[in-house]
Simulated assay, not measured.
Amino acid sequence: MTIAATPAAPYYAVIFTSLRHADTDAADDAYATMAALMLHSAARQQGYLGVESAREQVGITVSYWSSLEAIARWKQDSEHLLAQQLGRQHWYDHYMVRICRVERDYGFARADASA
């Protein structure tokens, strides 16, 4: 995973924060499969800009979008609707979705980071 290469602000961020339900290895496999499918499916959506994700006890996925309309289309995507349903039924004890407008961004990248 890398840090998403987003365009100049403004753009939008969808922050999905989750607590997984303790379950079996089979559920973990199904979850991982669905998570990979969602990353692939989101990347095909008009207005998608990138994603960053991390999981320990709390999972945090931040996806970046060009507009609120693009976010609304993604929320209603048929594969995404199925993932939302399965998440509520099987995988999550709790989750929050937060949508933010990114007004400014800046960063640092070491020139020799790949060495």
Rank of each mutant, 00 (worst) to 15 (best):
Q89C: 07
L82M: 12
P10S: 02
E56G: 15
D23C: 10
A115T: 06
E69A: 15
G50T: 04
Y106R: 14
I99A: 02
A27K: 10
L19P: 00
A9G: 05
S53N: 10
V58F: 01
L39T: 12
E103K: 11
Q57N: 13
D25Y: 09
S114G: 10
A5F: 09
R20C: 06
T6C: 09
M1Q: 14
D93N: 13
S78W: 07
S78F: 07
A36M: 05
E56C: 14
A70K: 04
K75Q: 15
Q85V: 09
A72T: 11
V58L: 11
L39N: 13
L81T: 11
S18E: 04
A43P: 01
V62K: 01
D105Y: 03
D25C: 08
I71L: 05
R88A: 10
M96R: 13
G50K: 04
I71A: 03
A43H: 07
R110I: 02
M96T: 15
T2P: 11
T61N: 07
I15L: 10
V62Y: 02
Q76S: 11
A9W: 05
A9T: 05
G50H: 04
L19Q: 08
V14R: 07
Y12S: 03
Y48N: 04
W91V: 03
D105A: 07
A72F: 03
S53G: 13
L49C: 01
R73E: 13
E56R: 13
D29P: 00
A42R: 05
D77A: 10
A30F: 07
A35C: 02
M1S: 15
K75D: 11
S63E: 02
E56T: 15
E56H: 13
A54G: 11
A109L: 14
S53E: 03
M1V: 10
A8T: 14
A111T: 15
S18L: 06
A109P: 00
A42V: 00
S114L: 15
D93R: 12
S78R: 13
Q89T: 10
H40P: 00
A8F: 00
H94T: 12
L68V: 08
T24M: 07
T17E: 09
R101Y: 00
K75A: 10
R44I: 09
H21N: 15
D93P: 01
H40M: 12
H21S: 12
A4M: 08
D28Q: 15
E79I: 13
D29I: 14
Q85S: 14
Q45I: 00
E56M: 14
D25P: 09
